[in-house]
Nucleic acid binder design. Structure first.
Lengths: 193, 193
DNA sequence: ATGAGATTTCAGGAACTACTGAAATATCAG
DNA sequence: CTGATATTTCAGTAGTTCCTGAAATCTCAT
């Protein structure tokens, strides 16, 4: 039983779930749990409090917090008259999502695009190489477009949460509007300017 | 040196990169490499060919293919007059993306939403619990909206690739159109229908 | 400067995951 | 049914990652 009894059952379940999810995807279990704890906490917590709540070693918490800081998912806060460092998760869920997306992009997408661009520079010798290069071109184009489009979405929601809340069916809504404007189908469109 | 010299340098680099990326995120190195190999290959490959190209053990390839099939990322093909099974990646990059997104949703998002919904049923006792539940409510709402919106995007692009290719700056384009229609800012909108 | 408290680093062991070869199972032509 | 070929399973090992306690480092009040 890894989680402190002082934590409400509600919190314990949430934290456990994020531990699981964390390991499903790149982040390790304890890092996920630390983040979940901070996300739920009404106040920033210091490392000792985290270690006690989750029953991790102090040094494990230290490493976990370092990783979360590298992901820019936790904020460092100082309480006046207390030398310890306190940590908190951003309040705004949209902000959290944005940061996560940015970090993943920086760590995974950009290196991939770089690799693809460099492969596209090469001159293929054989037919198989020509085919492989064409596949890479398709992937490169796809990812580039996805990124452009993602930038657009981010630009659309610069003032965080509230906007996203109205974003639900925004795409369909504006497309309906656009259809009314331009005539018909959402398929192909002429020049935007 | 894990990759067969018969593979062009171009392919070897791509495959190695996807091995790396695979391990960065949930999937293991060999599975990523098998996928990359299939993605580049002009023809479906059988397990032996994969094992030879990548210099993995035959059984490792078998397990990797099983996992890729569980993710619905490879297609099984039979060549007439050949008892062996051949595997290929879908040609269409948008299709690949769609399948990946669906699988991740099924494996990660849905369980999270379920957990959150069940937590939201509980009646909080303490103030901290009340706060934690409010945070979960925010997260639940955020993820739900994101999923609704994602559904919308998928509905928009039902005939795959070509559509996505025109999707690049679609959001900004249609918003420009909408702005012209409705008057001004993209901030808040009244009833759609 | 000193030392008390806070934080980080790090070596080593525990726990986990990946990979292999061998054996078992499945498939199919004759 | 039999044997040839293809595929999967599995036990064990190799390799990796995680976690801890102890020691080192940092920070600041006195």
């Amino acid at each position: 039983m890894p989680l402190n009894d002082q934590l409400p059952a509600l919190n314990r379940e949430f934290i456990a779930h994020f531990g699981e999810m964390g390991s499903r995807w790149g982040i390790n279990r304890t890092v996920g749990q630390i983040y979940a704890l901070l996300f739920l906490s009404p106040k920033p917590l210091c490392a000792d409090e985290i270690a006690e709540s989750l029953e991790f070693s102090r040094s494990n918490v230290s490493m976990g917090l370092k990783e979360l800081q590298a992901w820019r998912l936790v904020r460092l806060r100082h309480v006046p008259g207390d030398r310890r460092e306190y940590f908190g998760a951003p309040d705004d869920v949209w902000e959290i999502f944005r940061v996560l997306a940015e970090e993943r992009r920086r760590r995974e997408v950009e290196p991939t695009l770089t690799m693809l661009r460099s492969a596209l520079q090469e001159t293929p010798a054989t037919d198989d190489e020509r085919h492989a290069q064409e596949r890479m071109r398709q992937m490169h184009e796809f990812i580039s477009r996805l990124m452009i489009w993602f930038d657009d979405v981010q630009k659309l929601a610069p003032e965080t949460a509230v906007q996203l809340m109205s974003m639900g069916s925004m795409v369909t809504r504006v497309l309906e509007a656009k259809d009314r404007l331009t005539g018909r189908n959402t398929k192909k469109q002429s020049s935007p300017s």
